[in-house]
Nucleic acid binder design. Structure first.
Lengths: 246, 246
DNA sequence: CAGTATCCTCGAGGATACTG
DNA sequence: CAGTATCCTCGAGGATACTG
């Protein structure tokens, strides 16, 4: 994107972070993603070539540092990158308030949802032993997926992981998405949206604590309780035309 | 810009306001610009066709309302648009902190600077009678411009306005830009950057109060007093390469 | 003053194949 | 695992001319 060429702090900020994907990459780095392939997985639709280019631009701009080890490569935010927290928070709050309705079917991506979940595990709330969760999604998109959680790490499986299933979750994919993002509460999910969590009672009881849920959930919950009618992106509105004197 | 297709408040926010120019347009509307031609003047480089398109998109997204009167047309932010204030403030603060060095010569646009100034007049601090200010800019860009201020309004002139000159300002254009944006203080401007303001003592004394200065000045001043070394966009830095164990 | 219509360019980024 | 190289497409937006 060509710079605006304006000597103005906001125009300069947008020259650095205004490119497509850039802020989403920074948000992922801010929430702990470090590896190239993990960034790619969290940003469906970006090409590897473009991700690579954006990371290079962010390094040149001084927002990201690349650490190349013998076996792995890590990307970290610099202080300048971390300082974008306020911008990102403000964007999330605005989006939660004014541009966050029910999901459209094409926005429902079970693999991405599971990928998000595996990044937000409350390790100290997990049972001592490994738990294997099977997700049966139905609705706009359906499919079966697995999450294997241990205190050492979490992994997403697209095929049966071969372990005994400890917990089975059956959920409308749209409802589970909204639960993850804080648009509906866990209680509402069970009672009004038909989400079922089955397994040993002790596991079922602690299940919701295993996850830290989405970083955006607090903002989405806050927006929900505000009085203003949120803007609905589905209902196109025509321009208000006002004629006469003020 | 194609939507990201992610059910996530931040991605949705960027789908609405992530297009080039969009946030700059909203910032101008937020600081009081209402008319199409005034928006165009404040956004050098945008084409009228593109400005027209962006305003239409913003109306459809519910951030802007268009009021067509008999003789004039006005664009106003809706509540959704006004709620972007936190995003814009955060961007200005980040830009002031991390991406705001000395101006590049091609960023110095005297007409734009005068246009900004004429939008930020402290009407109640003006003398009773009309004042005409002549600006003699030199340095990277030079030229003579006039500002005519009355309690009824302000206007920028590119030719002598025909009134007697009350105040003459002589300034390096880069220095005056930095003064306007809060990067140097008025005292520094006079004592260290050679800016001269001449005229009747009473006028010269009150001159700095006639203007509200840039909206970004407080953020720029705050960034100046922070300890962190701001990122310098002029000095390209190579990626930090780190080898070995963590 | 406040735009629209039409044509055209060029560069962002996708697709594909390849590499240490 | 972490990318790069090459080719190609298509759409954002500029240029120009026009309008109520």
């Amino acid at each position: 994107m060509r710079p605006y060429g304006q000597y103005c702090p906001m125009a300069h900020a947008l020259d650095v972070i205004g490119d497509r994907w850039t802020l989403l990459i920074i948000r992922d780095l801010m929430t702990g993603t470090k590896h190239f392939n993990d960034l790619e997985r969290g940003l469906p639709g970006i090409s590897r070539a473009l991700l690579s280019r954006r990371l290079r631009q962010l390094q040149q701009a001084g927002l990201v540092e690349k650490y190349s080890g013998a076996t792995t490569t890590e990307y970290h935010l610099t202080q300048a990158g971390k300082d974008l927290k306020k911008v990102i928070t403000a964007l999330i709050e605005w989006g939660a308030m004014w541009s966050f309705d029910e999901p459209r079917p094409d926005e429902l991506n079970p693999t991405l949802l599971l990928w998000w979940m595996h990044n937000r595990i409350n390790v100290d709330k997990l049972p001592q032993n490994r738990v294997t969760i099977e997700f049966n999604f139905y609705g706009a998109v359906s499919g079966v997926y697995w999450l294997v959680l241990t205190r050492k790490g979490a992994s997403v499986c697209l095929k049966p992981p071969g372990f005994e299933i400890d917990v089975i979750v059956q959920a409308d994919i749209a409802a589970f998405y909204q639960l993850w993002l804080g648009r509906i509460s866990y209680t509402e999910a069970l009672n009004e949206f038909g989400i079922r969590v089955d397994g040993l009672p002790k596991l079922v009881r602690t299940f919701p604590d295993w996850f830290a849920w989405s970083v955006t959930a607090p903002a989405v919950q806050a927006a929900r309780s505000k009085p203003t009618t949120p803007y609905s992106p589905s209902g196109k509105r025509t321009a208000s035309i006002w004629i006469g004197e003020r």
